[in-house]
């Protein structure tokens, strides 16, 4: 039985990279005295699989991992118990928000898009107009590195939504107050292939600046799962609605 866990990662702990976070989970299961099944073979590995990598310094309300427990949970009560048990052994800033029995698909296959909220340290009007310009642009070329090579890519097809007027109520109050001086941008971007990273969005919004000088914080608020084969058209509100009617990974 594969259990899917969702968790948030907010605050200082955001500086812990993806691999280190994976190791942290391995230790957390042992601390919580939850056995993790291991693969067969000469070098047994714990049956844990992690979703999309969260960039170091990025925060999130919705990270996911799949785990096969051994012994398996014996009922719903056991499963409901997992979140508090694991939260208790995690460092401050990591809170397990949900646990449920996962379907056959892997997390990586399931997730097609992700929503980010970026806190940008630029005047709000400037951010609004830059965002509008990007939405109107047919192509957005940025330079990025792939396998050690610099290359130019058009990231426009990977940007589904980009807006400054959105409902911020999903964001934790603490987080909002910490970024109160910044302008917020919400972006829905593709995760397939190379994906579009928050720093690349900043690069597109304010070319030439070191992205982390422009963006003080960035938080993932949703991961989208697609159950139909409907393509996601860039910036189509319909696409988002289509995604929304499918399973939306539980938020805090």
């Amino acid at each position: 039985m594969k259990i899917r866990l969702s968790y948030s990662k907010i605050g200082k702990i955001r500086f812990l990279g993806h691999l280190d976070t994976a190791h942290l989970w391995e230790r957390a299961f042992r601390k919580a005295k939850l056995g993790v099944a291991v693969s067969a073979g000469f070098t047994p590995r714990p049956k844990l699989s992690f979703g999309l990598a969260l960039p170091t310094a990025g925060e999130s309300l919705v990270e996911v991992l799949d785990v096969v427990l051994d012994p398996a949970p014996s009922g719903e009560r056991d499963i409901d118990d997992l979140a508090p048990r694991l939260s208790a052994v995690m460092p401050a800033g990591v809170v397990v928000t949900g646990a449920w029995v996962a379907g056959p698909q892997s997390i990586q296959e399931d997730v097609v898009a992700t929503t980010w909220v970026l806190a940008i340290d630029r005047p709000a009007v400037e951010v609004q107009s830059r965002a509008a310009e990007l939405v109107a642009a047919p192509e957005i070329w940025i330079e990025r590195e792939r396998k050690g090579e610099r290359r130019h890519d058009d990231i426009r097809p990977g940007i589904f939504e980009l807006r400054t007027d959105f409902d911020p109520s999903v964001l934790p109050a603490d987080w909002r107050s910490e970024v109160s001086a910044s302008a917020l941008v919400e972006a829905v971007v593709t995760t397939s292939g190379r994906g579009v990273r928050p720093t690349e969005l900043v690069d597109a919004l304010f070319p030439g600046d070191e992205p982390w000088n422009v963006m003080s914080r960035v938080i993932r608020t949703h991961q989208w799962i697609e159950r139909t084969d409907a393509p996601c058209a860039p910036f189509s509100v319909r696409a988002r609605k289509e995604l929304s009617h499918e399973q939306r990974i539980a938020v805090g």
């Binding site: 200082k12 812990l16 460092p91």
Partner: peptide
């Protein structure tokens, strides 16, 4: 950057 945040067990 995790070198600088403390928070260890």
């Amino acid at each position: 950057p995790a070198r600088y945040i403390g928070c260890e067990d």
